[in-house]
């Protein structure tokens, strides 16, 4: 049987550890001091993470292996065609960029046009179903830093919130804790798009009822706040609902980026 002293000792220890973990949560939520603990533990656990991602990787590999010859030929053809179209567009774009630079020079503005990018691959998707984080295979040793924007071929995906030497954690724009400053291309109205925890939806709250917004309007980053570079596609408006009582409209938009299916992503390094 346990003695009274033993029980009391365990209670004190439990109380101490519980208070300690509450304190840890607060510190972790408010400050960055515990990042180092996180970094070291995830570094130690990285083999485990690799092991866990093996089934998915292996599946992809097998898939690639068994893709038939004709399919490859077809894919090759269509890629070539796409390449031709893209290079044609690129020519136009180059002319436009030159013109743009010239005009900006005329205006005396010094906005940067091209950003440097790092190509990264998805390592894993966060297992907490209530937040939307992904892990990529490039980290501080490749030049990824906290706050860098992340895009896929279609638009903005999110931003870097945590960096390890060989990997980085990205918070998606659809995370309920994430908000991104945006601008409507057509009307120029600025707003902020909040995540809702679903990869298919963003929400723009408290827009004035008089704002010029239509379904299918395109949203791009406004560049305000300095986190995201301006003019990257973010989302397309899918629904507008009016709050007649308070005179606001609330807008739902579908992210352009394939938040749930992109495997290759680009990390944008802001030019110094």
């Amino acid at each position: 049987m346990k003695t009274i002293i033993e029980v009391r000792g365990a209670t004190l220890q439990a109380l101490f550890l519980i208070v300690f973990s509450i304190a840890m949560m607060v510190v972790d939520h408010r400050f960055q001091h515990l990042e180092i603990v996180r970094t070291n533990i995830s570094l130690a656990l990285s083999p485990l993470r690799y092991l866990v991602s093996l089934p998915a990787t292996g599946g992809n590999w097998l898939n690639d292996w068994f893709t038939s010859h004709t399919e490859l030929l077809e894919e090759n053809e269509s890629l070539k065609a796409e390449g031709r179209i893209l290079s044609a567009r690129l020519q136009k774009l180059e002319i436009l960029m030159e013109e743009n630079a010239r005009l900006r020079n005329l205006l005396g503005s010094s906005r940067k046009i091209a950003d440097e990018v790092i190509v990264a691959e998805l390592l894993s998707v966060d297992q907490n179903p209530y937040s939307q984080l992904i892990e990529i295979n490039k980290g501080s040793s490749d030049g990824v830093e906290m706050g860098h924007a992340v895009i896929d071929d279609f638009g903005i995906m999110g931003q870097v919130i945590h960096v390890n030497p060989q990997s980085a954690t990205i918070i998606l724009i659809s995370d309920p804790e994430h908000a991104i400053p945006v601008q409507f291309i057509r009307s120029g109205t600025r707003s902020v798009a909040f995540g809702r925890g679903s990869t298919r939806q963003l929400e723009l709250r408290y827009l004035p009822a008089t704002a010029d917004i239509m379904v299918d309007d395109e949203l791009v980053t406004s560049g305000l706040g300095g986190r995201f570079p301006p003019d990257y596609p973010v989302a397309r408006v899918t629904a507008i609902s009016e709050d007649k009582v308070r005179g606001f409209v609330s807008v739902l938009a579908e992210p352009k980026a394939r938040l749930d299916s992109s495997r290759e992503v680009l990390v944008i390094k802001p030019r110094q």
């Binding site: 550890l17 973990s21 515990l34 533990i41 984080l133």
Partner: peptide, 23 residues
């Protein structure tokens, strides 16, 4: 703490309940 790091939750979010139930 190891669980919290692996799941990307706040450090302590899974630690606290584990402490409680083990106690």
């Amino acid at each position: 703490i190891i669980l919290d790091t692996s799941l990307g939750t706040l450090l302590g979010q899974h630690t606290l309940p584990l402490l409680l139930i083990i106690y």
